[in-house]
Design a protein around this nucleic acid. Structure first.
Length: 903
RNA sequence: GGGAGCUUAGCUCAGCUGGUUCAGAGCAUCUGCCUUACAAGCAGAGGGUCACUGGUUCGAACCCAGUAGCUCCCACCA
């Protein structure tokens, strides 16, 4: 049979994924084994796979596969999030394209469209995850808006309401005029924006009617010509809100304005009279020291308004246009109005000046619209009480954040947490289970019937209240109010709090997610875990970095700098991409992604494929003796050593280092050294090189173990090779995916050290070839003058083979006419036909000597330092003493050689 | 404005309790090789003022202080 020259991922990936599915390897049901559980951070149901998902899910899959191979009952629960704002926006757009407006539809009609749309386009992302090799238990796929999960949301709402943790209140909220919904503080991105600061004149109401402006004489004074000083100037970035002004505020200590105390002023253009109030909230040295107070459109102004009992005049519609309360520019968008009002003010002489100004403006995370502070009746969830235990889990280490630098951030947030605005003015989501009576009172209940029963018992209940008189709150809850239940709800822990699944799988083990949602999601899951199960929902939270491009920019659709993940898989194979993602993802740091990492991954897959091809081509000759025992013993030790390194890396979630340790073990130790040591030598006269049975079986066994440790990183390639007849007959269920990782074994450190020396000898021989332009095929002789304790005789075969020698001998004398080198204190000579250039040789030795002398000097100064001897740990001193002895021994030999060369 | 973190080779990063011949890895680069598994490869090599300045210490990439640059989080100065 012919084996392809390179590994061809396309021929294996779908095949093995289907095979794993068919044989139920991803399936998990509770049993007597120890569980290992991960719940996926549910991607948006309408989302498509991006690089962040690739990273995140590669990590989860590596963890889950490794747990499976360590004998645990590994369960990875997949699913999607209904993502109310994002999905509703998409559905609204889709309808708009069809010429349907959301406002023309009833709630039920809209939801029907949305559900159809979700069924058609939703969940694509889960199919994409399969291409990556994600070994989720697909039978457990959940959706945050499916019936039982929604029911959990409603039940928890009612539970928290009864407990007094959910309340309704008027609050200044972040209004997204584009999404027409409130968003939480955390969903507002503040960005610095170049703005204008408008200086506007407000006329002061005169006590004396003859002086000018009074209520009865509200004609506009002409500031341009009158030279009147009976006005004050305020600075604002939002001139379009002057019509909503309720007062002008000055600092009571501001001496410039004492004459304004108790005065009133007129709002320009509309000439509404407002008072001048005093509050030391106003900074005297900012702007003009006069602040226009607009309670309806600014949080601080709102609070000022409450303190001073000011009216709230809301001049904006929900879509950001001005309403009739503005009196002028009604119907204009807020930004258009800003420009127009500036022009009006200018025309009428109210505009003193305009300055450039930079300030922070809030943008909606979902729609990127400028957030409008707006007063609104909203539902809130009290946080302080729930935050306390959630903080303790992390501070006490019951939940570990990896990397731990996030603990500080977490603490800061939890200690300063604000109540959570959980209502959203949308239809796509779980509708708030609150019911309003015609008189405005409300009850909270799961169904209309229950609500009616409660309503009937209210004190001030209207006579003849009918069930139909109740109207349910039209809003839905924030998406996070369903996803915070995820680790519990996926196991039906609300509907059936004592079921076998939840008891077995909860708390889950590791959570892999992005630091961006540490508060949105992780913190709240911890709160919910504590509140509803009395237990943390997971033990470790691994926070991945943000995938950025080579230039360090966040990958985004608008920048177009994100590669298509499926395109990458197509190009480099899923295994190659997985390796590529991990190679550039140091724990907890952002990663600068570049395709070349995937290329490296693909090359690695190819390397393994070719190693397989080599071994596959071997034929056993039973009559041959095994002469490779040393190589076999060495690799076994090396393998066991690497296993402990890899294990330790995994324990610390250093996945990229675990991968690198594996990479080097396979590429360097196995392919470049071990296989080269044992592979049958090139023989021209023999038809086909053969191998002895002992070496063959050892190599096969090594290879199989290598496939196992590679599997979590490269599941497809390893499964493909696993089933080759090279490894013998396999039963249908004997798959790499469920193979058990080898247990660690003996590590012969002496042998490992010796082989390191041997490698150096071989490298030096190759160096001589390079330097002297000797072709690799030409065999060379080598003589050893062994001064250290290394038994080179044992390694004669290896050195002869890899150095391509024709003679390997020992000598007690230095050789002339030979290229020499040293490894540790041992001397090696490659006799040469030609004369060695004594000058060059001498220079080389002199250089080495100088280095050693310098080194020895520093060691000696340490050893001669009383304080060092007094303070350093004994083992450090021992090391220094050994350094000294080694250096001295080597120096002695060098000096002899130099004098022998007579230079 | 407040807080956290980062700065080590061209790139991405290790460097764990201050002490191995400690300045490392992978990639990239350069040189030589189409050697019978692999040119997506093999064999070698070069490459660093550990951001800067001081301090502590017998000893500092590592601890401390300051400076510069970058990143992130939080925050209501119109």
């Amino acid at each position: 049979m012919s084996i392809s020259k390179t590994y061809l991922p396309k021929e294996t990936e779908d095949k093995w994924y289907s095979y794993w599915m068919e044989h139920g390897f991803f399936r998990s049901v509770p049993d007597e084994r120890e569980p290992y559980t991960i719940v996926i951070p549910p991607p948006n149901v309408t989302g498509v796979l991006h690089m962040g998902h690739m990273l995140n899910n590669t990590i989860q899959d590596v963890l889950i596969r490794r747990a499976r191979m360590k004998g645990k009952n590994a369960c990875w629960v997949p699913g999607t999030d209904h993502a109310s704002i994002a999905t509703e926006a998409k559905v609204v757009n889709m309808l708009k394209e069809k010429g349907i407006s959301k406002t023309d539809l009833t709630r039920d009609e809209f939801l029907k469209y949305a559900m159809e749309w979700k069924d058609k386009y939703g969940g694509i992302i889960l199919e994409q995850l399969k291409k990556l090799g994600a070994s989720c238990d697909w039978d457990r796929t959940r959706f945050t808006m499916e019936e039982s999960l929604s029911e959990a949301v409603i039940d928890t709402f009612i539970h928290l309401y009864k407990k007094g943790l959910i309340y309704r209140g008027v609050r200044m909220i972040n209004w997204d005029p584009q999404g027409k919904t409130a968003v939480s503080d955390e969903e507002v991105n503040r960005k610095e924006v170049n703005q204008k600061l408008y200086y506007i004149r407000y006329a002061i109401k005169s006590e004396n009617p003859k002086d000018g402006k009074t209520e009865s004489n509200p004609d506009l004074p002409d500031f341009r010509t009158s030279g009147l000083s009976d006005y004050i100037i305020i600075a604002t970035t939002r001139p379009e809100t002057i019509m909503a002004d309720a007062a002008i505020c000055i600092n009571p200590n501001d001496e410039r304005y004492t004459h304004l105390h108790e005065k009133k002023v007129f709002i320009p253009l509309i000439n509404r009279e407002i008072p001048v109030i005093l509050d030391d909230y106003v900074t005297m040295d900012f702007g003009t020291g006069c602040l226009k107070v607009t309670p309806a459109h600014d949080l601080n102004d709102y609070e000022l308004g409450i303190r001073h009992n000011l009216p709230v005049i809301d001049i904006l519609n929900d879509d950001g246009t001005l309403n009739e309360k503005a009196q002028i520019l009604v119907g204009e968008d807020r930004f258009a109005a800003r420009k127009k009002i500036a022009a009006l003010l200018e025309t009428d002489g109210y505009l003193e000046k305009i300055e450039d100004y930079k300030s922070q403006v809030g943008f909606s995370e979902r729609t990127d619209a400028v957030i409008e502070p707006k007063l609104s009746m909203q539902w809130f969830c009290k946080m302080a009480e729930m935050a306390k235990p959630a903080l303790d889990y992390v501070l006490k280490g019951e939940i570990k954040l990896i990397p731990d630098k996030f603990i500080n951030t977490y603490r800061h947030w939890m200690e300063n947490v604000r109540d959570w605005n959980i209502s959203r003015q949308l239809w796509w989501g779980q509708q708030i289970p609150a019911w309003y009576l015609p008189d405005g009172q409300h009850v909270v209940a799961k169904t209309r019937e229950e609500a009616y029963e409660l309503a009937k018992n209210l004190k001030s209940q209207i006579s003849n209240l009918k069930s139909e008189d109740l109207t349910q709150d039209p809003d839905v809850v924030d998406t996070w109010f369903s996803s915070w239940l995820w680790p519990i709800s996926v196991f039906d822990g609300f509907k059936d709090p004592n079921n076998a699944d939840i008891n077995y799988y909860y708390p889950t083990n590791d959570l892999v997610t992005a630091p961006e949602i540490l508060f949105f999601w992780v913190a709240r899951m911890i709160m919910a875990g504590h509140e509803f199960r009395g237990e943390a929902p997971f033990k470790n939270v691994y926070l991945t970095g943000i995938v950025r491009d080579k230039l360090g920019r966040k990958m985004s659709k608008s920048l177009g700098n994100s590669p298509d993940p499926l395109g990458l898989i197509d190009k480099f194979g899923a295994d190659g991409v997985r390796v590529g993602m991990l190679l550039c993802s140091p724990a907890g740091n952002d990663l600068m992604f570049d395709e070349s990492y995937c290329e490296q991954g693909r090359n690695f897959a190819n390397k393994i494929w070719n190693a397989f091809k080599l071994v596959k081509g071997w034929e056993i000759d039973g009559s041959l003796k095994n002469e490779n025992q040393i190589a076999i013993d060495w690799f076994e030790s090396r393998f066991n050593q690497a296993m402990t390194e890899i294990e330790s890396n995994f324990e610390q979630f250093r996945l990229s280092e675990a991968l690198m340790a594996t990479y080097k073990l396979v590429w360097d130790d196995f392919c470049a050294w071990y296989l080269e040591m044992v592979k049958p030598a090139y023989q021209q006269d023999v038809e086909k090189q053969k191998i002895d049975a002992g070496t063959y079986s050892a190599t096969i066994s090594f290879f199989e173990n290598i496939l196992k440790i590679l599997h979590p990183f490269m599941p497809f390639l390893t499964e493909e090779l696993w089933h080759d007849e090279l490894f013998g007959e396999r039963a249908a269920l004997d798959c790499c995916i469920v193979a058990q990782l080898p247990k660690g074994g003996q590590i012969n450190t002496r042998l490992l050290e010796d082989i390191e020396m041997v490698k150096q000898v071989i490298a030096q021989i190759r160096n001589i070839r390079n330097a002297k332009q000797i072709p690799p095929k030409e065999k060379l002789p080598l003589s050893v003058k062994a001064n250290s304790g290394v038994a080179y005789k044992n390694y004669e075969l290896i050195i002869t083979k890899l150095g391509n020698l024709n003679a390997f001998g020992f000598t007690s004398d230095k050789l002339d006419r030979a290229a020499g080198f040293m490894v540790s204190t041992d001397e090696f000579y490659v006799p040469m036909e030609e004369n060695i250039d004594p000058v060059a040789e001498c220079a080389k030795l002199q250089k080495e000597k100088e280095y050693l002398e310098g080194f020895l000097k520093s060691v000696n100064s340490k050893l001669g330092n009383e304080r060092f001897m007094a303070n350093a740990k004994p083992e450090i001193i021992d090391i220094e003493l050994k350094k000294k002895a080694d250096a001295e021994a080597k120096l002695k030999i060098l000096e002899e050689n130099i004098s022998a060369l007579a230079c």
